[in-house]
């Protein structure tokens, strides 16, 4: 694969007209995946273009909008700010990979019930971020939820229904946990 040098000077282009591909092995939604990627490829583009996992969305591509949030080693991360090659030997989970996850199931239900999306572009990352807030017990009040969602931009809803849906899912899960004891 030929990679031109972008804004770099001609000497640079000469020095590395062909950038080496980097071999990666990652665990993606539970399955082992191996690929050779150009180092400049972001995790987001790797997921979308090489694995056809288009539930990961790209908005700003500089870490502000949050639409590309996935889990890396179990923790939310911006897939636009991670190079695919830096994910070698890591676990990645995308919105396609949460089948049977009780927190995501609850959030999907309450997002539906409370009409917590309009265009849906921010929704996969909202779900992943909300799941993390609930698991870290940072979804106790509307204020706390809004604080935790500051890094995920929604340009349709005004957030009200999203916050309501997350609070409802958190309550449901707390009740479920209390009943189980």
């Amino acid at each position: 694969m030929s990679e031109a040098g972008g804004n770099a000077g001609a000497a640079h282009n000469q020095a590395s007209s062909a950038v080496r591909l980097t071999a990666i092995r990652i665990r993606l939604n539970g399955s082992a995946v191996a690929d050779d990627v150009p180092p400049r490829l972001s995790l987001a583009d790797f997921l979308r273009e090489r694995r056809n996992l288009t539930g990961t969305h790209l908005g700003c591509e500089h870490g502000v909008c949050g639409a590309c949030t996935v889990l890396v080693d179990g923790e939310p991360a911006r897939s636009c700010l991670m190079l695919a090659c830096a994910c070698d030997e890591r676990e990645v989970e995308t919105i396609e990979g949460f089948a049977g996850d009780p927190v995501i199931d609850a959030l999907r239900r309450t997002f539906h019930q409370h009409h917590a999306l309009q265009c849906g572009y921010c929704t996969p990352a909202m779900l992943i971020t909300a799941r993390d807030l609930i698991l870290r017990q940072r979804a106790g009040s509307a204020r706390e939820i809004r604080d935790g969602l500051a890094g995920n931009i929604c340009r349709c809803t005004g957030y009200t229904n999203i916050v309501t849906a997350i609070a409802e899912a958190a309550r449901e899960l707390r009740r479920g946990a209390a009943n189980a004891q």
Partner: peptide, 26 residues
């Protein structure tokens, strides 16, 4: 040198930073 890359990759995406080699120390 790249560690978390949370500024550097953003700067690369914006073409503000154009390194030839990334040394990943994370």
């Amino acid at each position: 040198v790249i560690a978390g890359g949370q500024s550097l990759v953003a700067m690369m995406n914006l073409r503000v930073a154009v390194p030839r080699l990334l040394i990943d120390i994370a």
